[in-house]
Amino acid sequence: MNRPVIELNQISFGYNGQPILEEVDLVIEDGDFVALIGPNGGGKTTLLKIILGLLNPNSGSVRVLGKSPEKASAEIGYVPQNVHLNTNFPVTVLDVVLMGRIYPGWTARRYSAEDRTSALQALEKMEIADLAAHRIGELSGGQRQRVFIARALVTEPSLLILDEPTASIDARGQEDFFKLLAQLNEKITILVVSHDFYAITPYLKSVACVNKRLHYHMQAPGSEDALDLAFRCTVEDACPVEMLRKKYKGNHTHDHDSGGPSI
C-alpha cells in the first residue's frame, strides 16, 4: 500500500536489565493517524524516544522515513508532553516557534524574514498569532500546547509526533484540538500518545496498544471499527482499554451488540 513512515522490527529496550519494551513490531504507513495507548510505565514514551532517535534500542531495527532515526529526526515534528517546562524562561512565543527553524550543526545563521513569516503563519493556524510577542510563561497550558505544535509545524514535518497532547487542555478544547489534528492529518502522518483514548477516537485511523509488548495495531476504515478492534486489547490484564471502554459505554454513544466483535 503506502510507503511506511515508521518501521520497528523486533525492538527491545531495557534499563539495568529491567525490560521496558520487548520484541515490538510496528509499521505505520504514510497518511495514518495513529494513537499509541497503554498504561503508565508501559513504554509509550520510551517507544517515542526510540523513534525520535533519542534512545537506541538494545536490539531490533528502526527505520523512520526509510532512514535511521537520527537522520530522520529533522523531518519529524515533535510536540513534547511537558508544556510546563521552563515557564520562567525569558523567551517570547514567536522565538519559541522560531526554534523549529533552527539549522542543524554548528551554524551562526540568523533567522530570515521567511522564517519569521512561516512562524507567524503557524501561530495563525493555531489561532494564537496575537500572543506572538508575549512571554511564554504568560500563556495558559493549552495555549502553550498550541505554541509547541506551531513550533513542530514550522519544521515542515512529514511526521508529527505528539506526546500526551491533551494533558493540559480542557474537555471542550480537546474536541477542537482533535479536529485540528484531523485537518493536519490530510497532509501529515500523525502519531499521538494518549491516555485520552475516548476523546480522540472519532478521528483516528489506527490504534496501537503498548504495554511492554505491542498488543494490537489495527487499521480500520471507520473510527467506530477502530475502537472495536482496540477493545480486543482487553484480553491483556494490564491494558487500560477496558477502563476506557466502560467510560465510553456509559455515555451510550456506541452500541457494542450490533454486529461488532463480541467482547
Binding site: L52, G53, L54, S73, A74, I76, Y78, P80, L85, N86, F89, V91, V96, M99, G100, I102, Y103, P104, G105, W106, R151, T155
Partner: peptide
Amino acid sequence: SYDEEFARIRGVP
C-alpha cells in the same frame, strides 16, 4: 537552554 530534547531532534549539536 530552552528545550535540549527538541534541539537534539532538530540536529543541533
